[in-house]
């Protein structure tokens, strides 16, 4: 029996289900794993520390619905613990940072630099610029401010509703937990580039 036959059998079952189950079916949805605690919410790569926060009230914070526009803002805090930065000269640089947000299923959301976010509203443009992660020498972790990175997604492929994501590949849809996503970026140091990864955590943005 070929795959096609199975799909027809599945379609038949789903057709019956749509008549018998309230709300019908969204199709072939894989659910999120139960019991996976997610990635650590505090990254430590040597003296480099980082955290990444998503606030479900992002609309309130920016006075615009970024998610509806296919943009996911994430607040990053990144800094150096101890006195080692004199040796490391660790810094963020726009040409090297190359951040990505990896959804649970491995879908990589690319970085959208703040300057590339198009908006006719000057107040929003100013707000984005003001809040964007600064590319400079990393400060001490304890005093490192939060700064935003913006990630782009194709609403046809990725749908985000609060903290639940529907990720589509072909005819398969996966229901994912936003807070089990993984953020990766690169810090430039005297010893070369250092990749740092951290799990996305829920929180309220600070500034």
């Amino acid at each position: 029996m070929g795959v096609r036959t199975v799909r027809i059998a599945g379609a038949l079952a789903l057709a019956i289900l749509s008549a018998s189950c309230a709300g019908g079916s969204r199709g072939e949805v894989l659910s999120s794993p139960q019991g996976f605690p997610g990635y650590p919410k505090q990254a430590q790569e040597g003296p480099l520390w980082a955290s990444a926060v998503y606030d479900t009230n992002s609309r309130e914070f920016f006075d615009t619905d970024f998610v509806a526009r296919g943009i996911l803002p994430v607040a990053i805090q990144i800094g150096v613990r101890g006195d080692e930065n004199r040796l490391l000269n660790a810094r963020l640089s726009g040409s090297d940072i190359d951040p990505h947000l990896y959804l649970q299923d491995g879908t990589a959301l690319p970085w959208l630099p703040a300057g590339q976010i198009d908006t006719p509203r000057k107040t929003l443009k100013d707000r984005i610029t003001e809040c964007a992660l600064e590319f400079s020498l990393l400060p001490a972790w304890e005093s490192a401010p939060e700064g935003f990175l913006f990630f782009a997604f194709d609403p046809k492929r990725v749908e985000i509703d609060d903290t639940v994501i529907l990720s589509r590949t072909g005819e398969i849809e996966r229901e994912l937990d936003l807070f089990q996503s993984l953020l990766g970026l690169t810090v430039t140091t005297e010893a070369g580039p250092v990749q740092i990864f951290v799990g996305l955590k829920p929180g309220r943005w600070q500034r």
């Binding site: 794993p33 649970q104 299923d105």
Partner: peptide, 17 residues
């Protein structure tokens, strides 16, 4: 590469569940 690493975690977690 990282996408595949994340996907391996996802399916390994799914299986263990």
């Amino acid at each position: 590469i990282e996408g595949h690493v994340a996907a391996s975690v996802y399916y390994a977690s799914l299986a263990r569940g």
